[in-house]
């Protein structure tokens, strides 16, 4: 199996399960489809010489964020989306049109700029963690620390938001 093949398979799976995620009407299934999609993305990350990001992707996204989603879904016991009589048809049609236009524009710009702008490169050595870590803790140290404060704020904020209001 060449890396190229692996990439194609992984990317294909990611796209496929992303579609499943969007199409499926049950939120829990959507989450699971997204887990698979993200897992496949992690594989592509490994192929793009970013094993650390791949691991973080699995640990944080698949292992924490999406579990959180599942958790909330189960907690709220969200029902399946029921297909109502046409849900704001104008909005749906406009949205669909806009999405298609956007996709076309994206494709066009990809053709115009995307592939040509990247510098051609030789084989990348298999990603080593140390340089990334060194970069993270030197040049981006301040951002890293700021991030920790952001996470703390998010922790406190979500706690306050989700707390049941005490009955008077």
């Amino acid at each position: 199996m060449t890396p190229r093949l692996v990439f194609d398979v992984a990317a294909g799976l990611a796209i496929l399960f992303a579609c499943v995620m969007v199409v499926h009407r049950h939120p829990v299934k959507s989450v699971l489809a997204l887990v698979v999609s993200f897992f496949a993305l992690a594989v592509t990350y490994v192929l793009l010489a970013a094993p650390l990001i791949a691991a973080v992707q699995v640990i944080v996204y698949a292992g924490a964020i999406l579990v959180l989603f599942l958790f909330v879904l189960m907690l709220l016991n969200v029902p399946e989306e029921v297909r109502q009589t046409p849900d704001r048809p104008i909005h749906q049609a406009l949205s669909a049109g806009a999405i298609v236009a956007f996709a076309a524009a994206l494709l066009a710009s990809l053709r115009a700029y995307g592939a040509t702008r990247a510098a051609p490169s030789a084989e990348l050595p298999p990603g080593d963690l140390a340089p990334v870590a060194r970069l993270l803790f030197s040049d981006h140290f301040l951002s890293f620390e700021a991030l920790s404060i952001l996470l703390l704020a998010a922790l406190v904020g979500s706690f306050v938001l989700a707390r049941r209001e005490e009955s008077p």
Binding site: P51, A55, I59
Partner: peptide, 13 residues
Amino acid sequence: SIGILYLFAVTSL
């Protein structure tokens, strides 16, 4: 090279 990270990733799954 990311053995322990892999472990935690799988554990979290």
